[in-house]
Each structure stands twice: as C-alpha cells, then as structure tokens.
Design a binder for these strands. Structure first.
Lengths: 184, 184
DNA sequence: GCTTTGTATGCAATATTTTGCATAAGTGTG
DNA sequence: CACACTTATGCAAAATATTGCATACAAAGC
C-alpha cells in the first residue's frame, strides 16, 4: 500500500512518466522502497481512477509517446493524511537470504558465501559513493535546509550510515572467514 | 521461497513445533526473515508433503498436543544445495514507510514524525540490548568458534551493527529536527 | 466464577510482489 | 543491415505475505 504513497511522493514536485518513476525507484527512492515498472504502471492507473493523479500525453519528437503524471489536489490531501496516519512500526528486518545462508555456513559452502559477501561489498561501495556525492552536492549544510528537504536529507543520511555500517560488516565478516576459506 | 529454507535452517539442530518456530521467528531469526504463525504452519505442511521434514506427535500433560518437526536427510540435502545456489542479490532496501513519510516532512506533521522516530529508537534499544546479551553470552570469542557458529555470529553481528547505526541515526535525526519541532 | 494470557493449531480471503511475456519505436555499433 | 540497448508502455499468472477468523485447553489473576 505504501507504494502508492511513494509514487505520489515522487510526484510532489515534478510531473513524471511511468518510466521516469521506474528509474527514480531504481535510485534514491528505491533505497527505501523498490518497485518494478509493472507495479508502477498498474498503480498509476489505480491512482488515475481515484483522481489522485492526473495525466497528460506528451508527444516527443522521435520518441514513443509518454504519459506525464502529476499530483492532483485530492492526491496531495490524501498524501498528507497518510503521513500522519499511524503506521504499524515494524522494526526493520533486513530480509536478505544471505543471513539465512550464513546460518548454514560450512566447509562446503564457505567459498561461495565469501564470494557473495565480496559481491555485496562491491555493490554497496558503488551505491555509497553515489549517495555521498549527492550529499556533498545538495545537503552539505543540513541545518540550513528548509524543513521538507531536511526530511529528504535524513532519509539519505540513513542510507549513508546504513551503507557504511554494511561495508564495515562485510570487512569484519571477510576477515573472520579468511582463515577458514580458500587458503585454509 | 526463502521462508521454506529459513524454517529448515531453524530445524538444523533441534526438532521444533510450529509454535516454537513462530517464536523463533519473533526473535533472532526474525531479524532476518519475519513470518507469521499461519505462514509457518502452511509451509510445514508443504515441507511434510515433500518429505523434507517429518513430524511426530507429542502429547504433553496438561497442554494441547503438538507436532514436532525435524529435518529429514532429503531436507538436509535440499537445504545444502539451496545455500550454494545463486541468489539474486538485491542490496538491502530498508523498506520502511517512515522514510517515505520523511520525504513529506512539514510543519503539520513534524511532531508526529519526531514521535515515530523516538518510538523506533526505543524499540531498537530494546532489541539491541537483547542481541548484545546473546553476543556476550555465546559469541564472546568469535575466532574460536566452529565454522557454522561463526556464520550465526556474523548474522548476529550484522544485527548489532545495524542496530547501533540505527540508534545513531535516530539521535542525529532528532537533533536536527529539535529546533523545528514542538518547541519551535 | 470470569477474564485474560499463553500454548497450540489451522483455514480462507485479500493484498502485494515477483516473474514472464508482449509490443513498439529510435539509437548506436560492428 | 543485423543486433543490442534504451525509451516507453502494459497484461497475466504465479508466488508470497498479510489479515481476519476460528478452535481448544490450561493456568493465573481478580
């Protein structure tokens, strides 16, 4: 259900196409809520029916036609009430099968699992690099930001600290397992 | 699909009832993979059909009868092959609607959102406390552990470092928002 | 005696997410 | 000129997860 509001949130400032949204959900917003383009297109239809978003067609030269969506006033109201609605706080479970696999660590699978941790380390490094760049560019002085941007900054900051923690964990894990792995 | 293997993982050492499993998923294992008792009972039936687990009835004095499940050899094999099967690594998205709500931070909702962060901070403190206790008791000397327990330790360690990072983030967030909140 | 809490199990209906398939037009590369 | 890649949209089926409901027995508190 939150996907609906995540989409509306992405539309707060700009009008966007389904495709734009899909890419937004691949990047920053997607750190908090992932969604495939299929989900997004379907949700956009639902939102249109409810009149929480409106769309107009945009014929670009030499490109397929696209539908640009924007928030309606009703949508904005709905979003605002959602924000202050009680959420069932579920402390984040890092739903990652790697942890379950780690519970099964053995001589037979250690090399594979070590390689998986290394791969994650790489991927996280890259993402972290991206986030740090955004931070330096747009959020260098958080205390001077207008209120709403402070919120966005905090979400970003969460991504950054989580990423750093994750890297540190990978290093610790790789170090602990080094003596049992390939080299033995 | 991973729930299936999470359940089998929980059964690696002990035989357990659905109820036991449900509580295991409320605690440590549940930090990585949450599951309701309904899911668990259903999955246990499926696993029984596949002969990956077997069960026996246990009539306890003055208690409802329960079914104790244990891994079969087939189940153990299936689990082992799953561990070394390629996972589609999806870098953890912390799927938490709070972050989306933060993107919508405004004068109207700041007090609510601050209270939500405080609530999460409390909850995480408690959980972290539990994890730290387990760590001190059972994993004080990680380098001397047998291999499989090293894996479990690493999962626990991930929970702990994530928890600490989360607390630090909450504090940072509360500090940043303090000047804009109730007091103003 | 009555109510709540904990143990113990499960079905059924929704809701959500994922995966596979499908189309179409333009752009760049060998 | 064929092939891969990017932009752009969407349906349908399958897998998973959530929510509501339902039962039953025992212990403990009021």
């Amino acid at each position: 259900m939150s996907l609906r509001y995540a989409i509306m949130t992405a539309l707060l400032d700009d009008e966007m196409s389904g495709y734009d949204l899909a890419r937004a959900f691949d990047k920053s917003l997607g750190f908090f809520w992932h969604a495939s383009h299929q989900q997004i297109y379907r949700e956009l239809h639902t939102l249109s029916e409810r009149r929480w978003v409106a769309h107009r067609d945009d014929q670009q030269a030499g490109r397929p036609q696209r539908h640009l969506y924007r928030l309606t006033d009703d949508g904005r109201d709905a979003l605002e009430s959602w924000v202050i609605q009680a959420d069932r706080m579920r402390l984040q479970e890092s739903k990652d099968e790697l942890y379950i696999k780690l519970y099964n660590l053995s001589e037979r699978n250690i090399d594979y699992l070590v390689s998986r941790i290394e791969a994650r380390r790489e991927a996280m490094m890259e993402r972290l690099y991206l986030y740090e760049r955004i931070r330096r560019r747009h959020y260098a002085e958080p205390r001077t930001l207008p209120l709403r941007r402070k919120g966005v900054y905090l979400a970003l900051l969460s991504g950054i600290t989580q990423g750093r923690q994750y890297l540190a964990w990978c290093d610790e894990a790789l170090s602990l397992l080094a003596s049992d792995g390939r080299g033995r």
